[in-house]
């Protein structure tokens, strides 16, 4: 499927911010499932951006706006072609690096399991793609989608204990459940068809291949997903980080649009 995507983020300050240093992890990556075509980005106020690759393999743009500004915005847009997945069977996203199995089977403070995660993982059997599917269903059924019910600090265990959350909570919970069941897993940030905020899901390593699962939607990652970055948890994949002096953030808006390209 040919997709057009557009991500825009805008931060308003309650005064004049300056010496504003930031990083952006919002440029989609090439995978077995998706190819990036045209891709452009910009920040306002404008600043030179340097591009590098972090330890996870994600593209990071870094820059600093020195002069005082009351608003900061960043956008990225482009075209992505994704493979069509017509059934519900998962599509390989990447072939695994030899070290991946070792690197993605340890918990972080965000994915550290507690009794509820342990209970969910206890119902799983085997180490196959089906096990991951079962984990996805179980996590989907354990959390009710309630916008604003959690924060970036919420851990996987806290979300499943409360039974409420948003996509990042589903994704961290599924990673935690899978690791506990013996399947290396990681957190993914991306965009999906429609209009709204960025999305998050989970990748699971089975037999040398990474597969994407979307526990929020309870379906496998397919032609309507655009993958941006991965890491062990939310913290490794933060789209925007920034520090500045002179003002506080008064508001932030994010708008992502993904549509199917018309031929």
């Amino acid at each position: 499927m040919e997709l057009l995507f557009d991500y825009r983020m805008s931060i308003g300050f309650d005064g004049m911010a300056s010496r504003h240093a930031f990083t952006l992890r919002f440029v989609p990556m090439d995978t077995l499932r998706q190819r990036i075509g045209r891709c452009v980005w910009a920040v306002d106020p404008s600043a030179p951006l340097s591009s590098s690759v972090d330890s996870e393999g994600n593209t990071v743009l870094s820059g600093t706006v020195q002069r005082p500004h009351s608003r900061f915005s960043a956008c990225v847009s482009g075209e992505v072609s994704t493979v069509s997945a017509d059934s519900d069977s998962p599509v390989p996203e990447h072939s695994a690096d030899p070290l991946d199995a070792m690197m993605y089977r340890h918990f972080t403070p965000k994915t550290e399991p507690g009794p509820v995660i342990r209970f969910i993982a206890g119902g799983l059997d085997g180490r196959s793609v089906e096990t991951a599917m079962d984990a996805m269903h179980a996590v989907h059924d354990s959390i009710r989608y309630v916008k604003g019910s959690t924060s970036p600090q919420t851990t996987a265990e806290e979300a499943v204990s409360a039974g409420e959350g948003v996509c990042q909570d589903y994704a961290q919970a599924m990673a935690s459940v899978c690791i506990l069941a013996g399947l290396p897993a990681r957190y993914v940030v991306g965009y999906t068809v429609g209009e709204g905020e960025s999305h998050a899901w989970t990748e699971v390593l089975v037999d040398g291949m990474w597969y994407g699962f979307d526990p929020t939607a309870d379906r496998t990652v397919g032609s309507s997903h655009i993958k941006v970055s991965h890491g062990r948890d939310f913290d490794d994949c933060r789209i925007n980080r920034g520090v500045f002096v002179g003002a506080a953030i008064s508001g932030q808006t994010v708008n992502v649009t993904v549509t199917e390209a018309r031929p």
Binding site: A21, T23, S50, S52, V60, T64, G242, V243
Partner: peptide, 17 residues
């Protein structure tokens, strides 16, 4: 602060980069 503790006021933004 862009790679570790975001609240850090004593560090140097982008030094890790």
């Amino acid at each position: 602060p862009l790679e570790f503790e975001e609240e850090s006021l004593i560090g140097v933004p982008h030094i890790m980069s």
